[in-house]
Amino acid sequence: MTEMMIETRNLTKKYRGTRAVDALNLAIPQGEIYGFLGPNGAGKTTTIRMLLGLIKPDSGLVQIFGQDLKRERIKILRRVGSLVEYPSYYGHLNAVENLETIRRILNVPKNRIDEVLHTVGLTKDAKRSVKGYSLGMKQRLGIASALLGGPELLILDEPTNGLDPSGILEIRELIKKMPQEQGITVLVSSHLLSEIEQMASSVGIVNQGKMIFQDSMPNLQRKAGSEIHIALSDPEAGMITAREQGCFPRLDQGKMVFKGIDNGQIARLVSALVDARHSIYRVEERRKSLEDLFLTMTGSGSADTADADFRSGSGAPRAAGLPREAAQ
């Protein structure tokens, strides 16, 4: 069994009676990029603040590096780098001075500052006052601060929030390098499945303070599944052709919708449809969106029902009534 970097047991935090985080059990193995996923207000930031000892849990236990956070907070934090929500910085200071304020506390050698600035690509702007930085640069400075102490665990809360596509890409590439190059375990939170999907190796999904899914990324992708939509001139007749090919689609808004179909089957089907003189307008893959995944997961929690309730991304009403109501 791999060693767990972070483990929480029944972590709970209440705000005015409502449970922001409700009996959460996190398990983050070493060397992973763990995507912590959930809609806004699901309790991600609250959880992360508890992991960093910024707020105290009402009940439950946090173990980082196998040590109790309550007792060994300082020892643990020495090995953790963090970036919580929007970046913290001192606008009147430049990047080097900002890092120096942290370096003095961590007591690491001075050349670490140049190293981390290089890692995040801020060397050129190091002497500029941080007030004038773009959000992306501030976010990178935040990551540089987190890396300064040479952490074994990096906790990043919504690091790509509010960034433009190129900024998101930069941060993502930066995060993906961490486990490979420096052996750092990363916990990264986001409300975007697509974002997590592109960097995380394992994933935990929270909703309303509860962990509703926690597994490896491939397993989530399997669970999310995808459908192939084929739009064609005569869908009714197309259905018959498809059945002759051994595929059993459903008809949805004039499109044939296939589940669990592999590349070979699609190829054969398309050529059969062409042979049958159908005009094929579109062959597209539709992923279940995070919302759909949430709804199905919170609706029942079991994989079977999630599959049965599978719907198109457009949110067609077919078979969707039950999980949607249950989620609310």
Partner: peptide
């Protein structure tokens, strides 16, 4: 200095 960009969360997440 700390309040402006809410740098408390950064300062207090350091080993201090």
């Amino acid at each position: 200095i700390e309040n402006r960009q809410n740098s408390w969360k950064q300062t207090l997440a350091l080993p201090v």
